[in-house]
């Protein structure tokens, strides 16, 4: 079975952007575009994610400048389970969290969830990727799909259980 990163490359669910002067709302929109391209989500899907962050703050931005924009399971405008991967050459400013701590991201994993099992598998793999500092650094430096695969090959996540 292919890993989520291999799947991202196979399905062309990736993008690399120049993040200069890009707002977080625009970044979320851009991160979903590869999913829009093959009909995984609708063009407006990203708006639900933006509203959620506006309502609750940037809690989807984790350590190591990783953003995981997502909504609920089976949301309006999601048609296939998938992950839109995006790397920005500059940090995107998500404002501050509830403790006044600055939240910024340069790696995006934007989720669309329709099938529970597939989604669960995606989340489990992402949890491992997010904890793999070397892999995250390599992914942040990726500028081509080949870089994504090379990063994973160099710093594979350990199989759990």
């Amino acid at each position: 079975m292919s890993t989520v990163l291999q799947e991202i490359v196979e399905k062309k669910h990736y993008s690399f952007i120049d993040g200069k002067d890009v707002t977080w709302q625009e970044a979320v929109r851009l991160s979903a575009l590869p999913l829009v391209a093959d009909g995984s989500v609708s063009e407006d899907y990203y708006k639900q994610i933006v509203s959620c962050i506006e309502k609750y703050g940037p809690y989807m931005v984790f350590e190591h400048n990783i953003a995981m924009p997502h909504t609920t399971e089976n949301p309006i405008g999601a048609f296939k389970t998938g992950i839109g991967f995006m790397v920005s050459n500059e940090l995107i400013d998500f404002g501050e969290d509830e403790d006044g701590e600055k939240k910024e991201a340069n790696i995006f994993f934007t989720l669309s969830s329709v099938n529970s099992d597939e989604h669960m598998n995606n989340i489990q793999q992402l949890s491992q990727i997010f904890c793999n500092d070397e892999l995250i650094d390599a992914l942040a430096a990726a500028r081509t799909p080949e870089d994504i695969l090379a990063a994973e090959e160099k710093y594979p996540c350990e199989e759990e259980d």
Partner: peptide, 12 residues
Amino acid sequence: ANGAGSSLMMEN
């Protein structure tokens, strides 16, 4: 918020 992303990560 949605019970699909972060909460699942938390569960893991």
